[in-house]
Design a protein around this nucleic acid. Structure first.
Length: 924
RNA sequence: GGGUGGUUAGCUCAGUUGGGAGAGCGACGGCCUUACAAGCCGUAGGUCACAGGUUCGACCCCUGUACCACCCA
């Protein structure tokens, strides 16, 4: 093995092997438990960001964990056509080429999109492979492939036939940039500083005026009423009268409605049913006229007086305010903060606009979907997301599913010239179904479906539905959905609704919700902030100049480049070294505590790269000492286990239990921590060191040496399997080298059984023995360290006042101790023998003495002792305070009290001994 | 305005039935020790946001406050 761990040389090699050998496919074992994860489909033309990296790493850990447990495991993979996002990208490309989709026409445009997909569609799946993700690539799906389109059609038609999809003219959220309707969820409300204008509307009878307050003066041209609260004494007498709407020749009524907030503005509001959701509702209640004054670009249309026609909406706002002012109708303008709706993709200010759209009636679907979570058929992890889900589901509006886009699933509906609607799989089927003559002209709906409509069918659509396939039978419902909280409404809720309706079962049993990946300062990663980290750069490494370049090119606001460059140079003065996939994945896991966002700190990935290196080198040590030797491969051979062997095996059992427990409860952070502690803290730091004296000892028996090698190699082999779901590459690379020595068979670690604790191997005797040994070692090391005794220098150790147990333990550990702390001799001081002046430490009742002659400075040792004594004194006082409290003694459980008493006695005894030692030193 | 999560070492974070505050990174001191300097050994550093309450005992449970983040209206 190379001396240093080089991830790049092993990762791609193993991935290729795995994929070529079909290891990612389900075992197909129908007796085994099924385990299935359906990937949240990334945008087909997208590229991997930190959020993906995190999410895919979690899924892969679960998949590998279950696969190793022998489950019939499927990770279903696929990509999403991402309607708006993809169309936007292609339109931008066309614009750069000086053309547009309208010039190309629908068919050619869609052809262009497919070309773009063919060209850039492989990026994300290639990157998934770099992460070590192990989905069954042979089953890869795309939301626009033929089979999936069939599922989408079936669902649309069935819902339509069942009366759950309808077409209607309503106010929708209109995106004037993309010229499409969008759903409520795709609208982001941003707080903005604006104004509140107060305008006078003259009463038609000439008896005065009303003052209305509005944030959107331009819509006044579409006002069809003025509303006041029915109990508002200021205005009650005016209800039923009319006002003359300024700038127009219309008279509009004054109405009373509970919805009016008396405290807002003047308590009089203008009502524009065509351009405000609340006003629309009120218009319905009062049968008001609806006057649409905007066109698809959100410019004023021909329904307004001539001088405003064609005017841009925000220009019109200023103009109308000015004109009213000129007429003396502007009473005042106040600063006002308001929520302005924006399209999540376009960023354009959204207009409520009256159009014909398709809707899903959600309430009947929601009821069952709520019940499924209430009764535990679907569980959220962490649990508190269920409340978020409930509160949204209980207040669900109908879902607008039509989009005025070209890229997507075209709505399977046709119209005749009279505007009658026919829904079916194709024009032919529609003609047959509705017995339409050949001479009836039919035209298909131009719109496509919301991308989330098709994503909603993802769990069963990818498995072959509407065919009753074997995969569908075996793997649906899926086991776990791994997703971010941000798409619980967009996707999770809709999947639950649609799947329950069509499959009569839930799409998944568990929803694991992870947090957002942020930068180390807690900022969201975004191109415009220039703080994006590309996971691939962490794997392969990138130098500072290339990183700066990457972050500062293609910016929406090029003027930010210097700021971004400065920040980048400050945060990452050396760019990133090539940390490798395993280190990256391990970092994700270590940060994956539930219910909070994660701040990605590059310092941590370095630590885990070092951890990989540690495993690498430990394995080198083990192999050096095992290859070519008898490691007990012959299970019947003679071998003998030392206390250290029994101890590490015992610790391994406990680690196996904890890691499994952590993975079963989605605590990847705890799993990674537990493994790290065991591998580095116990196996490497202690066990490998403990093995050295034995393997080097020429007097040690062969059976003991075999036992040690056997333990070295078998514990290593086991921990590789234990770690494999988290760090697939390095574990495979090393496993291939150790498997034979450890008597494992098989072609890949991927398909080995996942380690399971054997409670018979838990050995408390060995654990106490090694715990004692560690205490002694640490006490001597402390003296060495504090006294600056060179590690190379051998020192004598004298023991005094030990118990029979101490003596027995020493007997057992004598030679190990000699080596571990580099001693020249260990001697027991007999009763009455003179004590040399020494540095002192305590292990229980036993005193450790390191004679000072030539080694130790009295002053330094006195200071060290004093520090120890101070610590003990504090502890003593704490304990004494507790025990002096009669309430504690009478009310606390007896075992707590007695533990406290023992502790106090120990502390006091230790303190006294050290005190004596200190006094002895001061007499010198 | 309603809701959720958070506040623990300089930084990033653990801390599950309430009973002596932990890790990694960073800092400081010492080591090229035959697996590993991407390492080893040692050390320092915390009124667990604040204020009350419950309790013999609170980082943990309850109430309130402040600040941060996010969701919804």
């Amino acid at each position: 093995m190379d001396k240093t761990y080089q991830p790049n040389t092993i990762e791609q090699k193993w991935y290729k092997t795995w994929e070529e050998n079909g290891y990612f496919k389900p075992s197909g074992d129908t007796e085994a438990k099924p385990f299935c994860i359906i990937i949240p489909p990334p945008n087909v033309t997208g590229s991997l960001h930190m959020g993906h990296g995190f999410q895919e790493s979690i899924m892969d850990a679960l998949i590998r964990y279950h696969r190793m447990q022998g489950d019939n495991t499927l990770w279903q993979v696929g990509t999403d056509h991402a309607g708006i996002a993809t169309q936007m990208v292609v339109e931008r490309m066309l614009a750069a080429e000086g053309t547009s989709r309208h010039e190309l026409g629908r068919e050619q445009f869609i052809e262009k999109v497919w070309q773009w997909k063919a060209q850039s569609g492989g990026t994300i799946t290639r990157q998934l492979r770099r992460l070590g993700a192990s989905p069954d690539w042979s089953r890869e799906r795309f939301t626009m492939d033929d089979g999936f389109y069939k599922a989408v059609q079936e669902v649309f038609i069935k819902l339509y036939e069942d009366g759950l999809i309808y077409r209607g003219k309503r106010l929708v959220n209109w995106d004037p940039k993309f010229h499409t309707a969008i759903s409520d969820l795709e609208v982001l409300n941003e707080e903005k500083q604006g104004h509140l204008w107060h305008f006078r509307y003259p009463l038609a009878d000439g008896s005065g005026h009303l003052v209305v307050a509005t944030t959107r003066p331009e819509t006044m041209l579409g006002d069809t009423a003025v509303a006041v609260h029915p109990e508002d004494a200021r205005y009650r007498h005016l209800v039923g009268k009319t006002v003359k709407l300024p700038l127009t020749d219309r008279e509009i009524p004054i109405i009373a409605d509970e919805y009016v907030d008396r405290a807002f503005g003047t308590g009089c509001v203008k009502i524009t049913p065509a351009h405000d959701f609340n006003d629309y509702e009120m218009g319905q209640r009062h049968s008001l006229e609806i006057i649409n004054i905007l066109d698809a670009d959100a410019n004023l249309n021909d329904a307004v007086p001539a001088q405003y026609r064609g005017m841009e909406r925000f220009a019109a706002r200023v103009q109308i305010a000015d004109d009213l002012d000129a007429l003396g109708l502007l009473e005042k303008v106040e600063p006002h903060t308001l929520k302005v709706p924006h399209g999540d993709r376009s960023g354009a200010v959204i207009e409520p606009w009256l159009t014909d759209q398709w809707y899903v009636k959600t309430q009947p679907l929601a009821e069952e979907a709520i019940a499924a979570v209430e009764d535990g058929r679907v569980n959220f992890v962490p649990k508190n997301y269920e409340n978020m889900y409930f509160s949204w589901m209980r207040d669900l509006q109908d879902w607008c599913i039509s989009r005025q886009l070209w890229w997507g699933h075209r709505i399977p509906a046709w119209y005749d010239n009279e505007g009658n609607v026919f829904v079916g799989r194709s024009e032919e089927e529609v003609r047959e179904k509705y017995t339409l003559d050949a001479d009836v002209a039919l035209r298909q709906d131009d719109d496509v479906l919301d991308t989330w409509f098709s994503s909603g069918l993802w769990t069963f659509g990818t498995l072959g539905w509407p065919e009753e396939t074997k995969a569908l039978q075996a793997f649906h419902p899926s086991s776990v959905l791994v997703t971010g909280f941000d798409i619980i409404f967009f996707w999770v809720a809709r999947m639950i609704m649609l799947t329950l309706y069509f499959k009569k079962e839930v799409p998944f049993h568990t929803v694991y919700v992870h947090g957002l990946v942020r930068d180390s300062h807690g900022q969201k990663m975004s191109k415009s902030k220039g703080n994006v980290i590309d996971p691939i750069d962490l794997i392969d490494g990138i130098d500072l100049e290339r990183l700066v370049q990457k972050r500062t090119t293609g910016l929406m606001h090029p003027q930010d480049a210097p700021k971004i460059e400065k920040l980048t140079r400050k945060d990452f003065p050396h760019g990133f070294s090539a940390f490798g996939t395993d280190a990256l994945r391990y970092t994700y896991y270590s940060l994956a505590s539930t219910g909070r966002d994660i701040r990605f700190d590059v310092g941590r990935i370095e630590g885990f790269r070092n951890f990989c290196n540690k495993i690498w080198n430990a394995s080198r040590y083990v192999l050096q000492n095992c290859e070519g030797y008898d490691c007990g491969q012959d299970n019947n051979g003679d071998f003998e286990l030392t206390i250290a062997d029994r101890w590490i095996v015992s610790q391994l059992q406990r680690t196996e239990t904890s890691v499994r427990q952590a993975l079963d409860s989605y605590r990847f952070d705890l799993a990674s921590q537990t493994l790290y502690d065991f591998i580095w803290g116990e196996y490497c730091s202690w066990y490998l060191e403990l093995s050295k004296p034995i393997l080097k000892d020429e007097n040690a028996s062969n059976t003991i040496k075999i036992g040690t090698r056997r333990t070295l190699i078998r514990v290593l082999e086991t921990l590789l399997r234990l770690a494999h779901p988290l760090m697939p590459f390095i574990t495979e690379e090393i496993w291939q080298r150790v498997k034979t020595l450890a008597c494992a068979t098989g072609d890949t670690i991927m398909l080995q059984p996942y380690p399971k604790a054997d409670s018979h191997k838990v050995d408390e005797e060995a654990e106490t023995a090694i715990a004692w040994l560690k205490q002694v070692v640490e006490a001597v090391r402390n003296i060495r360290g504090e006294m600056n005794i060179s590690p190379a220098r051998k020192i004598p150790l004298i023991l005094r006042s030990g118990s029979i147990r101490d003596k027995a333990l020493l007997e057992q550990a004598h030679s190990l101790l000699m080596q571990l702390v580099s001693l020249e001799a260990i001697t027991w001081l007999g009763a009455g023998e003179p004590t040399p002046t020494s540095a002192t430490a305590l292990v229980g009742e036993m005193e450790l003495l390191v004679p000072m002659a030539g080694l130790i400075d009295v002053k330094a040792e006195s200071a060290r002792l004093q520090k120890e004594i101070d610590k003990l004194t504090k502890e003593f006082q704490r304990g004494q305070g507790k025990l002096n409290n009669p309430k504690f003694v009478s009310k606390a459980p007896a075992e707590v009290v007695s533990r406290e008493k023992d502790k106090l006695a120990e502390t006091e005894s230790a303190r006294k001994r050290l005190q004596q030692q200190l006094e002895a030193l001061s007499r010198l």
